[in-house]
């Protein structure tokens, strides 16, 4: 019996080796080449940027606030762009993480999987993920600036002075709420609106990542907690969320790395071509790495001269987003390993 099987196997092998299968070779070769080609493109882009950018990057470059003419390779720097990008991304995180995590909690812990609520929320999340980034920009302009911001300005100019009076009279606080009478404060592009627009854009990223990590937590843990007489909320807060923390972090990091490189949503909602100082307030405009790259690439008076600083800026942005991506991948790998170890 045993001998027979061995025999049959050698025979097949022999048969295969005899006949050269052209189509198999062709097909594997073709698809393999497609894979190689894509990897090649990725490598070319990265190498091109790293090689060209590395020689132009310096401590001075990353730590200088440039003068108005930032096309000059010798004096320019990208500090305000790094600060602006970081600032808008941090503010975004503050908004998007709670909302995304709570939505994911509702979807996995509360809602029945097949209920209408869940299906509609899921459809909305999927759709939100597919909305073009420029449409988010329009939304930011139409909703946050022209609706929310302008109404805030109106409210402040209408009620600000009286509120100010009351506060001053009873609490001895003077907020100068009436100061905005002449020029808009909130009804114009500002850091807060750019951040909020990005928060809406990255909401699906956080929801999906958090959901994934919540689903990976064994039901047994929830049951154990509930059987001890914990309420659902206690179970979520004390057992489920601590376990899901790495997943939530991954989601947050992915959202940040996605948002850090996006330019289209902030074009009309807060980015500035040039600012002499760093942004200090939520209603300030800001400079941004991605937008700065766009400006350097398309509006330079002499592209050959700007090329090194362009590459250097790209390298800074790329290092930022890639570092974040890699951290996210590492956390995720560690969590998966841990889960597998738990069985």
């Amino acid at each position: 019996m045993n001998a027979q099987t061995t025999n049959a196997r050698t025979e097949t092998r022999h048969f295969r080796a005899e006949k050269f299968d052209f189509w198999s070779f062709f097909f594997s070769g073709l698809t393999g080449m497609a894979t190689l080609f894509i990897l090649g493109i990725l490598a070319t882009i990265l190498l091109n940027i790293v090689i060209n950018g590395w020689s132009a990057i310096s401590w001075h470059f990353v730590s200088t606030i440039p003068k108005k003419d930032f096309f000059d390779a010798n004096t320019t720097g990208v500090l305000p762009m790094i600060v602006g990008t970081a600032f808008r991304v941090i503010v975004m995180t503050i908004f998007v993480i709670p909302v995304g995590v709570i939505t994911a909690i509702y979807l996995t812990e509360y809602a029945a999987n097949t209920s209408l609520n869940t299906r509609i929320i899921r459809a909305a999340v999927n759709n939100l993920a597919g909305v073009p980034s420029i449409v988010f920009g329009l939304f930011g302009l139409g909703f946050f600036i022209n609706f929310v911001g302008k109404n805030m300005d109106r409210g402040i100019s209408n009620f600000g002075p009286s509120l100010d009076n009351i506060l001053q009279k009873y609490l001895h606080i003077h907020l100068h709420l009436s100061a905005s009478d002449s020029s808009p404060v909130w009804g114009q592009p500002a850091l807060i609106w750019a951040s909020l627009t990005l928060a809406v854009m990255t909401l699906p990223v956080v929801i999906v990542a958090t959901e994934e990590s919540l689903k990976a937590i064994p039901t047994g843990l929830r049951e154990a907690s509930l059987a001890l007489g914990a309420t659902k909320l206690e179970t979520i807060l004390k057992i489920v969320l601590p376990q899901a923390l790495p997943g939530i972090m991954t989601g947050g990091i992915l959202a940040v790395s996605r948002a850090a490189g996006e330019v289209a949503p902030i074009l009309f909602t807060g980015v500035a071509y040039y600012m002499a100082s760093l942004p200090g307030h939520l209603s300030d405009q800001f400079m941004d790495l991605g937008y700065h790259i766009f400006v350097l690439a398309t509006q330079s008076p002499n592209i050959e001269q700007t090329r090194p600083i362009l590459y250097a800026t790209v390298l800074v942005l790329l290092m930022l987003t890639f570092a974040l991506n890699i951290v996210a991948i590492l956390i995720r790998a560690r969590v998966r390993k841990k889960l597998r170890a738990m069985g």
């Binding site: 990725l42 991605g290 362009l310 942005l317 790329l318 987003t321 890639f322």
Partner: peptide, 22 residues
């Protein structure tokens, strides 16, 4: 190969733009 190709989506589109342009 799989995660590497997916890494391509981590490259911001301005960066792809610069590469295409230059």
């Amino acid at each position: 190969a799989k995660p590497t190709i997916e890494l391509l989506s981590g490259i911001p589109s301005v960066v792809v733009g610069v590469f295409a342009l230059l």
